[in-house]
């Protein structure tokens, strides 16, 4: 049986993890590769690297980071942040990224989704959407949620699906940072509407929230950052709890961790 996925998200700026991390026994908590290997070892199913570097050097440094991650990490990872062309995607995939996520560029130029899918295949094109509920209407926002648009969330994810997107990564701006749970109602609506996997993002605060996002939100995967970075929820423990609640999940046992350390 296919399992639900738990995905830590690492925000990257100038090749360092930002938002802070709290692994006391890491030599360098800001090193994304070290943090990523740690997550991989303890049972993360995938990783997302979101690059928020704003400088001209961005493209080159991100490609270098992707190469380092690919060399050392043995689970799939997605790279996102300011990707807007076939060339951007090509470099990242060549350097070993499994998937890329596109956000604002796709809303501004929807045929970009078709172009990327034709060139690289649906399996590696994730369409990320930031949306906010305003007076009962979910509206898509751009540039990391800063710029509102009149685009309706559900119409947009349907269009992205029709254009060949392999997955949708939906961040609810109403829930992001609140630690009060995911946008389960909107997620469940979306899940009925489209037939590709949905990654839920925004609002994870405790284990119960993850149970709810899979049971009520019908999400295929749940993404979170701070609850993992600050070790508030250890991934292995979270997965045991989810499994006990009857949610199909890949458990990483102590034996497998031991085996890999040797």
């Amino acid at each position: 049986m296919l399992t639900k996925r738990i995905i830590p998200c690492l925000d990257i700026k100038d090749n360092r993890t930002v938002k802070g991390v709290n692994f006391l026994d890491l030599r360098d908590a800001g090193d994304p590769v070290e943090l990523a290997s740690r997550y991989a070892k303890y049972g993360a199913d995938e990783l997302v690297f979101l690059d928020i570097t704003a400088t001209h050097e961005k493209r080159k440094t991100l490609a270098e980071l992707v190469l380092k991650v690919a060399q050392q990490i043995d689970i799939p990872f997605t790279v996102g942040g300011g990707i807007s062309s076939i060339e951007d995607v090509s470099v990242l995939l060549q350097n070993g990224a499994d998937k890329v996520s596109i956000n604002s560029a796709a809303v501004k130029n929807p045929p970009l989704i078709n172009d990327l899918v034709d060139r690289f295949g649906s399996q590696c094109i994730v369409v990320a959407v930031d949306a906010k509920k305003i007076e009962d209407q979910w509206k898509v926002h751009l540039v990391g949620g800063k710029v509102p648009t009149p685009v309706d969330l559900f119409e947009w994810v349907s269009e992205a699906t029709d254009r060949g997107a392999g997955e949708i990564l939906f961040t609810s701006m109403n829930h992001d940072g609140t630690k009060a749970g995911f946008a389960n109602e909107a997620l469940a609506t979306m899940s009925k509407l489209i037939n590709i996997p949905i990654i839920a993002s925004g609002g994870a605060g405790n284990i119960h929230h993850f149970i709810e996002v899979f049971k009520k939100g019908k999400a295929d995967a749940a993404l979170a950052a701070s609850v993992f970075h600050y070790k508030e929820i250890p991934i292995g423990y979270l997965k045991e709890k989810l499994s006990k609640k009857g949610i199909p999940i890949r458990l990483v046992t102590k034996e497998t961790i031991q085996r890999s350390i040797k």
Binding site: T3, R5, S122, D220
Partner: peptide
């Protein structure tokens, strides 16, 4: 079920 199958089986 959703297609593609993406994830751990």
């Amino acid at each position: 079920l959703k297609v593609p199958q993406i994830g751990w089986n």
